[in-house]
Design a protein around this nucleic acid. Structure first.
Length: 231
DNA sequence: GCGACAG
DNA sequence: ATCTTGTCGC
């Protein structure tokens, strides 16, 4: 495995281009018993990142456990290269899972990226696992504001009008979220799955719970390692 | 040169 | 991303 911490942006770009043609975007059919949510948290100006993956039952969306890992990172945050900063820690959290979820929702974009290699796609290709990207802000592409009701959505397009994902109104009166396929998932199924994960909040349950977990972990409220919940 | 810019 | 008070709306 390449050491992301010592890469230059040009070298990272070359890696993205290489991983790009390994991406599989066929629709996800398989049944879903467990779905995962992945996110990262860190203190400003610190090189320590707190990564976590939460596992939820599907379709109840009841959390059954979480894998938390602390790691040092030196690759800086550069728009378009988020994966080189967060993927290493997420891989540690992933390997620590006793059982893998059927599909994973990553906080960030999938193919809605300049080179179609957002963090969800990058992580998916490396682990060969089905992933979906769910981001709070646009990185790349054009779109029209979706309607006001929960579930309303509009297409996110790139060069030549290529469909990269969707802009989804996850809740009334809040900014929309950006959904795009990561790896081994398609455009329609990824959008529908995220819609099925919406409850009372702006963010879909997998990433919302992952965000809560890594934040509590960073604040010392939760222990590192794998923790099974009593459900 | 100017605007955009995941976390 | 994180920091951080009050305030508006359902």
């Amino acid at each position: 495995m390449i050491d992301y911490d010592v890469l230059s942006v040009p070298e990272a770009t070359a890696i993205q281009k290489n991983l790009q043609d390994q991406t599989i975007l066929t629709p996800f059919n398989g049944p879903i018993n467990y779905i995962g949510g992945a996110d990262i948290s860190f203190n400003k100006f610190s090189t320590t990142v707190y990564a976590g993956i939460v596992i939820l039952q599907y379709p109840s969306l009841i959390p059954v456990g979480y894998s938390l890992v602390k790691k040092e990172v030196h690759f800086p945050y550069v728009p378009g290269f988020l994966a080189f900063r967060e993927v290493p820690a997420l891989l540690d959290a992933w390997q620590q899972l006793p059982v893998k979820p059927d599909i994973l929702v990553v906080d960030g974009h999938g193919i809605a990226h300049p080179r179609q290699m957002g963090i969800a796609t990058h992580f998916g290709v490396l682990t060969n696992q089905p992933t979906i990207g769910s981001a709070k802000k646009k990185l790349y592409g054009q779109f029209e504001e979706p309607g006001p009701n929960r579930g309303d959505y509009t297409p996110l397009t790139g060069r030549q009008g290529m469909l990269l994902g969707h802009v989804l109104r996850s809740k009334p009166n809040v900014k929309p979220v950006f959904v795009s396929p990561g790896h081994r998932t398609g455009m329609t199924d990824s959008l529908q799955l995220i819609i099925s994960c919406l409850r009372k909040h702006r963010l879909p349950e997998p990433t919302r719970l992952a965000h809560n977990a890594v934040n509590q972990f960073r604040l010392g409220q939760l222990p590192e390692g794998w923790t099974a919940l009593a459900v």
